[in-house]
Design a protein around this nucleic acid. Structure first.
Lengths: 344, 344
DNA sequence: ATGAAAGCGCTAACAT
DNA sequence: ATGTTAGCGCTTTCAT
């Protein structure tokens, strides 16, 4: 016992307020929650006591009693990823405006970690969870739903289960990009993609294939690269790609991280965009407008995805009514810039 | 009453486990916390019951009883800002590894919001709070400390109060950048800074002034721009700057956001870096290596800042001993790239 | 080693 | 309108 137990300084409770206001804890609780009428004088006295004692309610105790914590869980792949942090920001702003706090965890796309985090949030009694499902953990998700926790997916879909979702049309976005490259006159369009079994990546690849097929082209599998999802992986894939035949004359990077890696590789190889090779990317960021050349991209409304998800979820939590069964699909926008302009 | 009250399906409690295991709640608690010896057979029975019932403890109830929630609060300026999200990631990884969950809130540098969030986290009974203080709210911070909540500052200092802090040497970082520009032969070095009374900005400006003075130069106040902290503000300041005399031949942007705006402005003005104007920025990111030209920057160990803060804080929480009084200063590194190289 | 009982701070019947 | 009481699920004395 070298360290004496060090309890928090006894905080002020509802009893202290009641005593000071000359009333009962129940009445204090009533003014706190506004749940019932309290005579004006008493209410004043209580308010004054709260003010003087600088009292704030213990949310743990309240949550234990009410089974509601005014807290939302957010589970995303990676907080450092600007797409996800923007989604989180959208959730955060909406939640805060409505008196909810958010607990954030990221998984770095590890399925076990996703599972652990879902459980931990359940144990913390969050009122709802917004997450970017990796696929898998359907059993747990169903279990949580049955326990009455409102669940909501963003960015990705989860199969075999009824789960409300907010995302964009990845297929169409990819189609737009590839179609644009084709119209610009590019002939051998490569795809740099992640091999992770995540729906967004898969759908973007489908969009790529659809666009090529729609143009009547044959798909050359040698132009399709798959690897890890990180910047370094994008770089490696691009270097490998540019060492082989046939050489592509344009690259479609399926995500921002992959694109950064791919561009780093092209830079190292001293290839200039778009003169030596055209370039487009799924997911747009502010700094793409500053790159030289500026980057053609498909813009996803990341912030709005977060806002929408939070709004739907809180609506459901407060109205006690089920969430919309069909996915909410937000539009993507093609931003044509220099990197895809073939010099004629 | 159109909606029948919709309570969560009664979850499994410690009593259910006790009943199934043929023992008392107290004993179940004992095996859960490992607080006392339990006869092996009983322990087995309890473990089996937990397994079969798929029981997990209610963390709210536990927290209410123990006054410990295994939760850390994180309050930063903006989650979307990659510097802060990287700090948060460092905190998150360390916290998760040690069984702690994190609650994140951002303030967009609004002092009232910072205050509200600090209070909210206190009311949520977090065990500790890591935050980037704006300055102000010292009274509340002191109050929370007295209540036994472990507080820790990152990135910025808070004056007039004893608060453990992890940050970098902003002055020296700025000096390094400006000194480098001077050595490269630039003669009129402008500063694009935020006018917010945040210590990081102020210290970077001091570093800028120190470096000029050390070179024996007179400081030209017309080359110092101050405005909002956002990308758009950086753009506006740069455009204003380039319309006036004397014209700078180099720009030092005091933050990443300001730099992005400044670069956008230079691009619009068709000025090329570094031929028309040199450029350096405080805070380095992956994509600076991909810009054309690549950007000279000072690198802050953002992830490590988060890790260190979390480690110190959890150490203090678990050891029940006070935090180090003097600030922990992490080194910055000058990354010289193309944007600051004067063509000779 | 283990069970009974109290209590963390709050809200919500139930009385009056 | 307001006070009394019970209880949310857990841990922790205190007995035994």
């Amino acid at each position: 016992m070298s360290h004496p137990s060090h309890p928090r300084r006894t905080p002020i409770t509802i009893r202290d307020v009641a005593r000071k206001a000359g009333t009962s804890p129940a009445t204090v609780s009533r003014v706190l929650t506004g749940s019932a009428n309290v005579r004006p004088e008493k209410r004043e006295a209580v308010l004054r006591a709260i003010e003087e004692l600088n009292y704030t309610p213990n949310l743990l105790a309240r949550g234990l009693k009410t089974q509601r914590t005014q807290t939302l869980g957010v589970i995303i792949n990676n907080i450092q990823d600007i797409f996800y942090s923007t989604v989180a920001k959208g959730i955060q702003d909406y939640a805060t405006r409505n008196g909810y706090l958010i607990i954030i965890a990221d998984t770095t796309d590890d399925l076990d970690r996703e599972r652990k985090m879902l459980q931990l949030m359940r144990d913390q009694s969050v009122d709802g969870i917004i997450f970017a499902p990796m696929g898998g953990n359907q059993d747990l998700v169903k279990e949580l739903q049955e326990e009455g926790i409102a669940l909501m997916a963003v960015d990705r879909t989860l199969e075999g289960i009824q789960l409300p979702t907010v995302l964009v049309d990845n297929r169409k976005g990819a189609e737009k990009l590839v179609d644009h490259l084709i119209k610009e006159g590019f002939q051998r369009i490569a795809l740099i993609n992640s091999h992770k079994p995540i729906t967004t990546y898969q759908e973007r690849e489908e969009g790529y294939r659809n666009a090529l097929r729609a143009a009547g082209w044959q798909i050359d599998e040698r132009l399709i690269m798959r690897g890890g999802p990180r910047m370094a992986d994008g770089r490696a894939m691009t270097i490998a790609l540019m060492k082989r035949h046939p050489l592509p004359d344009a690259i479609f990077a399926a995500s921002g991280s992959l694109a950064l890696g791919a561009l780093a590789a092209l830079r190292e190889l001293q290839l200039s965009v778009p003169d030596d090779i055209g370039f487009v990317v799924f997911d747009d960021f502010d700094y793409y407008r500053i790159f030289s050349p500026t980057l053609t991209a498909v813009r996803q409304p990341a912030y709005q995805i977060g806002q929408t998800a939070a709004a739907l979820l809180l609506g459901a939590i407060r109205e006690e009514k089920p969430l919309p069964p069909s996915p909410t699909i937000l539009p993507v926008e093609l931003m044509v810039r220099e990197s895809s302009q073939k010099r004629r």
